[in-house]
């Protein structure tokens, strides 16, 4: 979706302000927001892409005003409500008013958390078909504006780039955010800055995105 999260090329946000010796967390509530998000996610009721979609679905004014963990927390509340693990009333009062819903996976234990952190959840899958594009091939990123989740940033849509790497078939975020499983090929596609930004672009700059196959259409090779 064309939400506030799609920031590449936006202007007016001011300088980057790195913080010296920045700690992992700035407050205890941030620690708990991160941990709750991961532990609740482990119940298996939503995918990482549904989680991202919940964050980017926040009103742009809220999204841009919030700290990152506030965005996570607001999205977590929304997911718990949408998946019917909690009722809005329970969230407002902080008191359980009905029994817990059955979840796809059991509650994460301390040992389970250690395993989850150590192993992760790989996103590579067996491909359903051969890769449509080869390294070195010219491709155009589609012009598309889906209302749902997508990982094709606006600044790359309609632009012509070159396939540089093939990463195998991966979970397709656009489908995964709808609760569907659909492995597709994943590529690194590189664009010269001039193609993305036009006149005045840094002539020494190349920008790449990770592009899922459904985002791309073929172009004839330069003859």
């Amino acid at each position: 979706m064309n939400g506030a999260q799609d920031l590449g090329g936006a202007m007016g946000f001011g300088p980057v302000r790195p913080e010296k010796a920045e700690p992992a967390f700035h407050a205890r509530w941030e620690e708990r927001a991160l941990a709750l998000t991961l532990a609740a996610g482990a119940l298996g009721e939503w995918s990482i892409d549904e989680g991202r979609y919940a964050r980017e679905s926040l009103h742009p004014a809220l999204y841009l005003n919030a700290s990152y963990y506030e965005i996570w927390l607001r999205a977590l509340e929304k997911l718990l409500r949408d998946k019917k693990l909690l009722e809005g009333k329970e969230l407002e009062t902080g008191r359980a008013s009905r029994p817990a819903a059955k979840t796809r996976r059991p509650k994460l234990t301390a040992d389970g958390a250690r395993r989850l952190m150590a192993k992760g959840t790989p996103y590579r899958r067996e491909p359903c078909a051969p890769a449509r594009f080869a390294v070195g091939g010219r491709v155009r990123a589609k012009v598309m504006n889906p209302h749902g989740h997508t990982r094709l940033p606006r600044y790359a849509r309609g632009k012509v780039g070159v396939v540089e790497r093939i990463h195998g078939a991966h979970v397709f975020p656009d489908a995964s955010a709808r609760g569907q499983s659909e492995p597709v090929w994943l590529y690194t596609v590189a664009f010269p800055a001039r193609e993305l930004w036009g006149e005045g672009a840094d002539p020494t700059l190349t920008v790449s995105i990770e592009a899922f196959e459904p985002y791309l259409e073929p172009l004839p090779s330069k003859g």
Binding site: L34, A35, L36, L86, A96, A110, G112, R114, M117
Partner: peptide, 17 residues
């Protein structure tokens, strides 16, 4: 609320942090 409903274990949260 999540602990009360049995969805999360505070010890797992501590491990993650």
């Amino acid at each position: 609320l999540l602990v009360e409903k049995g969805y999360v274990d505070p010890l797992a949260l501590d491990v993650i942090v």
